[in-house]
């Protein structure tokens, strides 16, 4: 993998990755009214990290992410499941959506809701799943390379 990491790609990645991650958050949050949503946003985020993986290596990508993608996966499933509970607690059916639109300073009116929490769950699951697979594959690749070197 190291062979792929040219200087240009590395430099560009350093600039592109934050933009891609910001964009994925943007796509996630606008998703309810404009094209977007948790699924696409998760894929965008994963693409960003995959780019970083190509520019550097699996180990550095992992440390950049800070959390194990498997944990993201689990957290996402948890968030998506839990988002159905508030409705149940208020006596409605499971996954009845609840909305809360407080007015915050600077931001103005904000739409907060259980579907938003659900969508964040979807986002984390997609991001976590793709990164789990990609990092595992890349990691296995690098280990295979190491063993060939050592031989």
């Amino acid at each position: 993998m190291t062979a792929m990491g040219s200087l240009i790609l590395r430099t560009a990645t350093r600039l592109l990755l934050p933009l891609l991650l910001l964009f994925s958050l943007f796509v996630l949050l606008r998703g309810h009214d404009e094209p977007g949503g948790g699924f696409i946003a998760g894929l965008v985020g994963a693409t960003g990290f995959a780019l970083y993986l190509f520019a550097f290596d699996a180990e550095r990508t992992r440390s950049l992410m800070g959390v194990d993608p498997r944990l993201l996966l689990g957290l996402g499933l948890f968030a998506a499941t839990v988002s159905g509970l508030p409705g149940t607690l208020l006596g409605h059916a499971f996954y009845t959506s609840l909305w809360w639109t407080p007015t915050l300073p600077l931001l103005g009116e904000v739409k907060l809701s259980t579907p938003l929490l659900f969508d964040i769950g979807v986002y984390l699951v997609v991001l976590g799943s793709v990164m789990t697979i990609v990092l595992a594959l890349a990691g296995a690749e690098e280990k295979a390379e190491e063993t060939t070197w050592n031989r």
Binding site: H32, D33, P35, G36, G38, Y95, W99, P115, D119
Partner: peptide, 14 residues
């Protein structure tokens, strides 16, 4: 009902 204009997303998450 779904407080959203993106129908695909409203169907998916609500």
């Amino acid at each position: 009902e779904g407080h959203g204009r993106n129908i695909v997303n409203v169907i998916l998450v609500d």
